[in-house]
Design a protein around this nucleic acid. Structure first.
Length: 523
DNA sequence: GAGTTTGAAACT
DNA sequence: CAGTTTCAAACTC
């Protein structure tokens, strides 16, 4: 293998002028208004011809377009077209499982996918990030590259050899664990990330606080899988906190991490991951840590932050995923006009889950407020009863009943927080997103059962309460006594939901206007 | 940009 | 499986 043959390989880098984009054009791309498919996205390109099918995770793909932190797990085109949930994970790519992003300009605009610089591996070993990620080298700075269509045979051999060494070599090393156990819960400083490194890192000198560390690079905490020394990448680590809380304003990594936490932490990864607890962590805080005074606000803040990064638009709505877009090839000006809702590609199940998560928080806050109010009321009543012992027995009984109901439900919630103890995982949020010890209303519980459509039917039950069919009745031992709390919780949730719908409408209108604008300029 | 450090992958 | 070597990215100057 002569070095000379490699010298011709790397095509010149394609320069992109993202920053000079006309704002509306950039917005259009971000919102995917015009195409339905992100430019240069793997799904928008034909897959390479293969002599015989490789394992799905080894199917070559062109370099994926840089995506924001939250990405779909790389799957083969076949898989993409199958009816599979778009598994969003928090930047699952490890340095090897996916090319390092390095894909943001200062203003947050994505730039070209990073190219590898391999010199001695022919880009046929896992050292090569392109190879490891299952993508062809494209515009890389590598030397003597065989990771391309022209050398498909050699590449195939390399893939097989790699798989022989490690059958999981091409699987994401960092990903949400489907139906995972609770040991994958991670906290990224501002939220929980339900992923961990499958093999764990083995860092010795970096303290796991540099990008040498695969865990750190993936924005997750080290887990019990790691065999690192002098690890500082754990919950509560001062060094780590200093790193992430030093300068948020200019720290894109922090913002992205927070965004990840917001998206994934809100509900878990597509409902797959439960809420595990890192065994390496001590005193892992539940969803909204004790440092957060107003959890719902906090969560919403990240929510909006994410959306600003990705869309500069409607806060709680995310762009379409490749799966959702697959098959939508209609473009403006096409003779084949098919109706698409203005909100198509905007709302996804993930968004609904996130929304539900926000509602849960609101509901929890409402419950807590009510509980506090009742406590103070109860205290007042007791004080009064000391003075007038026979005046308000009935009122006291009612107050006590409601108070007890809260306690019972709280207990049920907390027990639901321990899926380790055998609780089923069917409610992926399983209460852990809730501030601990707070009661959950039927509406909240229903919202938490994010995969079950039955809640929507139950919501229309004659008694006006949300249905309980997705939850064990034991969670509502004193249903009647909690009517007031439920009503308040639902009022708040519905109010918030109304606000979201209003914003959705606004967003649809904006999109509609934008499409009109584009049509105006389309021949 | 060159040199160094680092840790994963590959090899023994 | 453990130790060593190779490798390329991350980091430093």
């Amino acid at each position: 293998m002569g070095e000379s043959e490699g010298s011709e390989f790397p095509p010149k880098k394609q320069q992109q002028s993202e920053t000079a984009d006309f704002p509306a054009k950039r917005l259009a791309r971000q919102l995917d208004f015009t195409q339905g498919v992100l430019p240069d996205h793997p799904q928008s390109q034909s897959s390479p011809v293969a002599v015989k099918p490789l394992p799905a995770q080894c199917q070559l793909q062109p370099h994926p377009q840089p995506q924001p932190q939250v990405v779909s797990i790389l799957v083969s085109p076949q898989q993409q077209t199958q009816k599979q949930p778009a598994v969003r994970v928090v930047k699952p790519e490890s340095p090897k499982s996916r090319p390092r992003p390095n894909a943001e300009l200062k203003d947050g605009t994505p730039k070209k996918q990073k190219q590898c610089n391999c010199k001695h591996s022919r880009c046929l070993k896992l050292y090569c990030e392109c190879f490891a990620s299952g993508t062809y080298c494209d515009g890389c700075n590598c030397v003597n590259c065989y990771n391309n269509v022209e050398n498909e045979a050699a590449r195939r051999e390399a893939v097989e050899a790699t798989l022989e060494r490690n059958p999981n070599a091409f699987r994401p090393k960092i990903a949400s664990s489907p139906h995972g156990t609770r040991d994958s819960q991670e906290e990224t400083g501002e939220g929980l990330v339900f992923v961990k490194h499958n093999k764990g890192c083995h860092c010795k000198k970096s303290g796991c606080l540099k990008k040498y560390c695969e865990c750190f690079q993936a924005n997750i905490l080290c887990s019990e899988n790691c065999k690192c020394m002098d690890c500082k990448n754990f919950e509560g680590s001062e060094e780590r906190q200093a790193l992430f809380h030093g300068d948020h304003g200019n720290n894109m990594a922090y913002i992205q991490q927070a965004a990840n936490a917001a998206i994934t932490g809100a509900i878990g990864s597509s409902g797959y991951a439960s809420l595990p607890v890192s065994r390496k962590r001590k005193g892992q805080e539940l969803f909204f840590g004790k440092t957060v005074k107003d959890p719902s606000f906090h969560r919403l803040g990240h929510f909006q932050q994410v959306s600003h990064i990705r869309h500069a638009a409607l806060s709680s709505l995310l762009p379409s995923n490749p799966v959702a877009r697959a098959g939508n090839t209609s473009t403006l000006g096409s003779s084949k006009i098919t109706y698409r809702s203005l909100l198509a590609d905007i709302i996804q199940s993930q968004d609904i889950k996130e929304l539900c998560s926000v509602f849960m928080v609101l509901s929890g806050e409402a419950a807590k407020t009510l509980s506090d109010q009742r406590n103070s009321t109860k205290k007042r009543v007791e004080d009064q009863s000391d003075t007038f012992p026979y005046s308000s027995t009935q009122e006291r009984l009612q107050s006590q009943k409601e108070f007890d109901a809260d306690i019972i439900v709280s207990n049920d919630c907390s027990s639901a927080n321990h899926a380790d103890e055998g609780a089923p995982d069917d409610c992926s949020l399983d209460g852990a997103d809730m501030p601990k010890g707070r009661p959950m209303s039927p509406g909240t519980l229903a919202l938490m059962c994010d995969e079950q459509d039955t809640i929507f039917m139950a919501a229309a039950s004659p008694d006006g309460l949300l249905g309980y069919d997705c939850n064990s009745p034991s969670q509502l031992p004193c249903g009647q006594g909690m009517t007031e709390a439920h009503a308040e919780q639902e009022r708040i949730v519905l109010t918030k939901f109304r606000d979201c719908l209003n914003r959705l409408i606004t967003f649809g209108e904006i999109k509609g206007k934008f499409l009109s604008f584009l049509q105006f300029f389309t021949p």
